[in-house]
Amino acid sequence: MSEAGLALPNARGTDQDTAPVFAEEARILGLPKSRWPGILAPIVVGVIMLVAWEGLVRYKNIPAYLFPGPLVIIETLLSDWATLSVALWITLRITFAALIAAVLLGGALAILFTQSKWMERSLFPYAVILQVTPVVAIAPLIIILVGDVNLSLLICAWIVAFFPILSNTILGLNSADHNLVALFQLYGASRWQTLRYLRLPASLPYFLGGLKISGGLALIGAVVAEFVAGSGGSASGLAYRILESSYQLKIPRMFAALLLISLSGIAIFLATSWLSHRLLYRWHESALKRDT
């Protein structure tokens, strides 16, 4: 539609030359070069620690039922994999169900609270109460009241996991640039349009920050609740296996179950970090690397 003679003659001048340049890094095995030190350094530290641990256990001749070395733990993990993998699956299932519930309910409540001041005023204090009450303290109550063990565990894990998502998303929904809000008003945007095109995308970085925290908390919540339920003899997840092994003095198995919990936590953290990077890398400051 630009007519001859009216199009800008030399718009591509100075202002284009000052556009920021982003680092285009060489990649090793698909990852940017600068990421590798952050991956390798902790691995090196880990290997040194494990070797020292194994060496100490062997040198001092500490029996495996007191304090097993890493090799024995790996051995146990493999030999007991049948039982442990079932337990792992149970714990992970509760963790993910709780996390999904936290995302749905936390997100929905956040939207509701930012749409209605009265909703926020009347309900937010209860969200805080749920958050500050230690889950160990209410878990027995929930288990008795709910009856179904899996559902009780889910509720406990959800209680622990949902608050960071709720509070972060509320913050995000309210953090849209005020000039952009004015712009939407200027064009007569409806509430729904403002939510859909402005507030929700603006809240995404905050929501994802909350998700990273909640992922770990959901696992912690599930494990803690399992301990409570497990001491009543009615559970079958990883925490229950730890309890059981401690009664039976199968210490290597305790460590193996513990290892699985830690690995799950790390996997959840990496997955949420990856998701966050995927969704934000094109536009959010936290995910950009400027060439300097």
Binding site: T14, D15, Q16, T18, A19, P20
Partner: peptide, 8 residues
Amino acid sequence: PRELSGGM
């Protein structure tokens, strides 16, 4: 927007 200069 991040990839553009102020003028752009």
